[in-house]
Design a protein around this nucleic acid. Structure first.
Lengths: 355, 355
DNA sequence: CATAGGATCGTAAACGTTTACGGAATGCGT
DNA sequence: ACGCATTCCGTAAACGTTTACGATCCTATG
């Protein structure tokens, strides 16, 4: 009932001004909380704006002050991503927004079409000047986007680390740590032949995860066997396929580390078809998202973290590199490895009998 | 190597014009494919623009012509959604973009923060004039957003039907049909006591699904028992909880229909804890996404559809109601129920022995 | 040759906002 | 009464485009 239809059509600040019989400049200042305006008139202006449903035209404002108050989160809806992105982005987004909301910043998601080159897409978005700052995700091992963003001086942060030279800001899940922890645990249970599944090594995620695994093995004096690294899609099918390939090896591994916990569904299925019981005949450790993993049988040992909090962290890193907000978020450390917590299940809790 | 650094900083069309020693108006016409410009000069302009990396400032353009060439897809990252959205949106997005790309329209996703009212959020976004048209999702049973959009005359389409009066454009999955088909199938296998799980009836999805179920039962002369309708979250936990509640009933159902196929993981787990074997002692039918369902044991009977194609359809409905594109997509039917296909598994393939 | 008309381009206004600047009114101290 | 600082507000320029309009040149036609 506040927004009646009895008013003249609201076209812009000009109509609002002449409705109040005040100059357009004063109206603008009143709305934007500028100091030199009488509190009395400010109240009137705000009331009228609310009543007439006036909201500043974003294009006009952006044009004038060269800023949009919008932050973009670029995601890739590639087939690979679609399989495993799941609620990852939406959860991180929640964290991001909880911070942005404090500063009247809106977050929009920029989904790069899967038939378009991410670099070109980003270039277009940057040129359009539709966002003040950017968050990019799914960083690649060589990712030209970092150079582009650095060159154009647009504030940004990456969800996923940068392996290129230059100190780009990013936050990333601790793949190293996870791989390390998983290997340690499995070795402690007597395993020596440990397989791992990961996406292509072109993707940072795939590269780092396997690197951490390799170094952990090295630390335990176990030779790294490339045959035990299975590149598969992060989906149920991928898990099925991983199991399939592992079963074909002559010297079968006794344990396997999965990059994505849903893969366990397919993997469980396939090994059980072969009469192998997960958690008894083969140890399985999964990555991410405990809640669903505990509904598998046997419950999956995996790693949990708060993606919401990761979003908060990302937002703060980003704001710290935006001139307008850097005084509020004075960060010296612009790169952060986000920890995960082991959630023990029963899929790897058996001890391998010495052979 | 195309974008050298040896050029003067590219500020706007003005610099581009004086670099070419051509008037700014001609440059604009050349870039926008207007007719009255020499093909020769057009080539020069395009080449120079490419070389200097000029892209029109979106704010300036929007301000002048009142259009942004951006379509917004509003999603809610509420807890409820995050649990079950899965890759739903990203897949639909792919279909949307495949159509939009043909017209140089960019799609952005507008995630409504979970602590903000969707209606208010939408109002803000509309007022900001950041998008030319909107796609809203997760329609509620009474959804003021329809009225808002209709009143502001901004072109839109809903992913999810509208139950309010007025002929709003939408496309929605065929929940009725699915519920009907599931009931038919279960009844044909001898079941009479069939449970169903769905989200709150405030959400269209929850309401329609149960309505279809109720009508199907009626058609078979089976009394509708509210106790058999379990409102639960669309997640593994939700499935576990559903099973839990069903087990507590004195007159236990012999079959259950799930709104979300991942719920089957939790449900399987819980009933098996009680010594009940899915597919033998209880029939289970799930909704959506066949691929993952077939990795459950026993494979889940469920319903498959192409969300990508649904996106295409949505995009076309939307464009058909945008004046600038309506001649390309002349649609008379602006409301569409999207079909799904039964994917028979083994979770409901047993016949109930007559008691 | 005169002129109509098409092809091509330059000029300037307009989109809606923010903000630097200056002016008017007021209060205060002398 | 005067000067000065302060408070408040109006004016107008600027942001980067697009586009209506008119100017110029050229060609073809009478």
């Amino acid at each position: 009932m506040a927004h009646g239809g009895k008013h003249p059509p609201m076209k812009g600040i000009r109509q609002l001004a002449e409705h109040l019989d005040i100059s357009i400049g004063t109206v603008s200042r009143a709305l934007n909380g500028k100091p030199d305006v009488n509190e009395e008139t400010r109240k009137r202006v705000l009331a009228a704006a609310e009543q007439l449903g006036y909201v500043a035209n974003q294009s006009g404002r952006s044009l004038r002050q060269g800023t949009t108050n919008v932050i973009g989160l670029m995601i890739q809806s590639s087939k690979e991503t679609v399989e495993n992105s799941d609620n990852f982005f939406l959860t991180v987004t929640g964290g991001l927004q909880s911070v942005f909301a404090r500063h009247n910043l809106d977050l929009i998601m920029l989904p790069c079409p899967n038939d378009e080159n991410p670099y070109e897409y980003l270039k277009r978005m940057v040129a359009r000047r539709i966002v003040d700052a950017l968050i990019i995700s799914e960083t690649q091992r060589i990712d030209k986007r970092f150079d582009l963003l650095a060159k154009t001086k647009i504030p940004f942060v990456a969800l996923g680390r940068s392996l290129s030279i230059g100190q780009h800001p990013w936050a990333d899940l601790d793949f190293d740590g996870v791989a390390n922890c998983a290997v340690d645990r499995l070795v402690a249970h007597g395993h020596r032949r440990i397989a791992i599944s990961a996406p292509s090594s072109d993707i940072n995620l795939g590269f780092i995860f396997v690197e951490g695994y390799r170094r952990a093995l090295e630390r335990h004096g176990i030779a790294y066997d490339p045959a035990l690294v299975i590149r598969a899609k992060s989906s149920e099918q991928g898990g099925y396929q991983v199991a399939d390939e592992l079963l074909r090896l002559e010297d079968r591994p006794t344990a396997v580390i999965l990059i994505y916990e849903l893969m366990a569904i397919g993997l469980y299925r396939r090994v059980m078809e072969a009469g192998i019981i997960p958690g008894r005949d083969i140890a399985v450790v999964g990555f991410r998202e405990a809640p669903r993993a505990k509904f598998l049988q046997p419950p999956l040992t995996c790693f949990r973290t708060s993606l919401h909090e990761l979003g908060v962290e990302l937002a703060e890193i980003l704001l710290s590199s935006m001139p307008a907000y850097s005084h509020i978020y004075p960060k010296t450390q612009r790169q952060m490895i986000w920890p995960l917590e082991l959630v023990p299940g029963e899929s790897d809790s058996f001890h391998l009998k010495a052979q």
